[in-house]
Simulated assay, not measured.
Amino acid sequence: MAGSGHDRLWWMDGFALSSAVEDFAVVPPFEIRAGCEQRVPFVFNSPHSGRHYPDRFLAMTKLDRNAIRRSEDCFVDELFGGAVALGAPMLVANFPRAYLDVNREPWELDPRMFCQPVPPYCNIRSARVAGGLGTVPRVVGEGLDIYAGRLQLGEALDRIETVYKPYHETLKRLLTETHSAFGFAVLVDCHSMPAGVRVGDSGVRPDFIVGDRFGTSASAALTRATTGLLSAMGYTVAHNKPYAGGFITEHYGRPARHLHALQIEVNRGLYMDERTLTKSSGFDALADDMTRLAADLMALPDHNFLDLPMAAE
């Protein structure tokens, strides 16, 4: 398994110099955290925890350094980082979600954001674009506009070509290598959610939401095992609502081909202060529990990963 240094060189060598490349000339846009050998058929992914805000990007925004972070899944890579020592690679974004969202289709672009017309193949009518949360977002989590005016279209195309596409090529490679080595692969897509999120008419605030795209991205047994393990730890767990999984879960989850993808959303109130964006006293205990969850999932019998997906709700 290649380490982050190798992948950084691969990324820099594969594309011509551009503004997006310059944004990550010192800090690579993403990295693989892995041990010397992959020992388990799991790949962990943290696409929204990036916290390197390039100076050029900050100069383009109308938000201060604190407000621009409101879409960030703060510290999620650290919460799930114990999986690396257990033998699983983890792909981690260093670029922030406000800069580029790889949990979207590659061309979910809002034409109102740009000085020039977007290409005809762009998906301009998705609900995510309408909400300002496309591939190149218009707003951060609280509905705050990121930019004072329109962007040059080339800015978005550059980020997609030189950051988005290499990120997904790397994730696809990790999953392909895992599937080839073990006969199946499990992607755990790691996210966080605001503390105030409530579920359904009951108004329950879940500690976790496990998403499997309504039974289409992972085996029923794997989903049941994940929710059961979290519940046994004393957490309140919801399933698919309001977060069933984004583009990554939907795109890579193919249980009939023994490729499983789960999205796990963690309530930020468990481990951080959302106002100051700092860790709380509960962080270490939660990180220990996430390592235990990873270990317990890795210990499941193979039949948990080889059965058919649930029927869609």
Score class of each variant (00 low, 15 high):
Gly3Met: 04
Gly5Tyr: 04
His6Lys: 11
His6Gln: 08
Asp7Phe: 10
Arg8Asn: 09
Arg8Met: 07
Trp10Ala: 13
Met12Leu: 14
Asp13Tyr: 06
Asp13Leu: 12
Asp13Cys: 10
Asp13Gly: 06
Gly14Pro: 02
Gly14Asn: 08
Phe15Cys: 09
Phe15Gly: 11
Phe15Thr: 15
Ala16Lys: 15
Leu17Gly: 07
Ser18Tyr: 02
Ser18Ala: 06
Ala20His: 04
Ala20Thr: 13
Val21Arg: 11
Val21Lys: 13
Val21Asn: 10
Val21Cys: 13
Val21Phe: 11
Asp23Cys: 10
Asp23Arg: 06
Asp23His: 14
Phe24Tyr: 15
Pro28Gln: 11
Pro29Ile: 02
Phe30Cys: 04
Phe30Leu: 06
Ile32Gln: 03
Ile32Trp: 05
Ile32Pro: 00
Arg33Met: 11
Arg33Lys: 12
Arg33Cys: 08
Ala34Asp: 04
Cys36Ala: 12
Gln38Met: 12
Arg39Pro: 00
Pro41Ile: 05
Asn45Cys: 15
Asn45Met: 04
Ser46Pro: 01
Pro47Glu: 08
Pro47Trp: 08
His48Val: 07
Ser49Tyr: 03
His52Met: 10
Tyr53Asn: 01
Pro54Glu: 00
Pro54Asn: 03
Pro54His: 03
Asp55Met: 07
Asp55Pro: 12
Arg56Pro: 00
Leu58Gly: 09
Ala59Ile: 02
Ala59Glu: 14
Met60Arg: 14
Met60Cys: 11
Met60Ile: 03
Thr61Arg: 05
Lys62Arg: 15
Lys62Tyr: 05
Leu63Arg: 11
Leu63Trp: 11
Asp64Met: 09
Asp64Leu: 10
Arg65Asp: 13
Arg65Asn: 04
Asn66Trp: 08
Asn66Lys: 14
Asn66Ser: 15
Ala67Lys: 12
Ile68Cys: 05
Arg69Phe: 06
Arg69Gly: 02
Arg69Trp: 02
Arg69Leu: 03
Arg70Tyr: 08
Arg70Ile: 07
Ser71Tyr: 11
Ser71Gly: 15
Ser71Leu: 12
Glu72Asn: 11
Glu72Gln: 14
Asp73Cys: 05
Cys74Gln: 09
Phe75Glu: 04
Phe75Tyr: 14
Val76Thr: 13
Asp77His: 15
Gly81Glu: 04
Gly81Met: 08
Gly81Pro: 04
Gly82Ile: 06
Gly82Glu: 10
Val84Gln: 00
Val84Lys: 02
Ala85Pro: 01
Ala85Val: 04
Ala85Ile: 01
Gly87Met: 07
Gly87Gln: 05
Gly87Ser: 10
Ala88Val: 10
Ala88His: 07
Leu91Ser: 02
Leu91Trp: 03
Val92Trp: 00
Val92Ile: 09
Val92Thr: 09
Ala93Asn: 05
Ala93Cys: 13
Asn94Gly: 09
